[in-house]
């Protein structure tokens, strides 16, 4: 599970009342992949990150990164940084190349735990946890 994906997920159980974000990460295994083609895809990657910026919850990303052992992100995202190419490239790396392989996601409201195995989070809710039966 990438940090970008972590930033898009919420505990939508009835009990969490729409506040189940962001998940606290307890990391058992993290894999960081270096992209050997980084130079060739630089333009595209930067463009991608720029488009992602409005979607990102920055504070949640900073915390999630640090829970995966990456403490290099600044606490606030200034407009200067959002224009900086080296910064955007580094951000791309953190969003896309850091994978939580094994661990636990904990809802900040209810404490409900969702396991991550082989890089795949199991977000299944039991029927009685759902607002209405969504199936």
């Amino acid at each position: 599970m990438r940090l970008l994906t972590h930033n898009t997920m919420r505990n939508n159980s009835k009990e969490a009342k729409g506040m189940g974000f962001p998940f606290k990460i307890t990391a058992a295994e993290v894999k960081v992949i270096d992209n050997p083609d980084a130079g060739a895809t630089e333009e595209r990657d930067i463009d991608f990150v720029k488009r992602m910026l409005p979607i990102l919850e920055w504070t949640a990303l900073v915390r999630a990164a640090s829970e995966c052992g990456i403490s290099s992100l600044p606490h606030t995202l200034t407009t200067d940084l959002a224009e900086s190419r080296p910064f955007l490239q580094a951000l791309y790396h953190i969003l896309m190349n850091v994978h939580l392989i094994k661990g636990m996601l904990t809802c900040p409201v209810t404490g409900r735990e969702f396991p991550v195995t082989n890089g795949v989070p199991n977000m299944m809710l039991e029927e009685d946890e759902c607002e209405r039966v969504r199936l």
């Binding site: 997920m9 977000m123 969504r134």
Partner: peptide
């Protein structure tokens, strides 16, 4: 397939955990 190397898998019901962040 270089342009679609970013697939992610989530075990869930439809797209339930992506609501309403996405």
């Amino acid at each position: 397939n270089n342009y679609i190397q970013k697939i992610e898998f989530i075990e869930c019901n439809l797209a339930q955990p992506l609501l309403n962040r996405l």
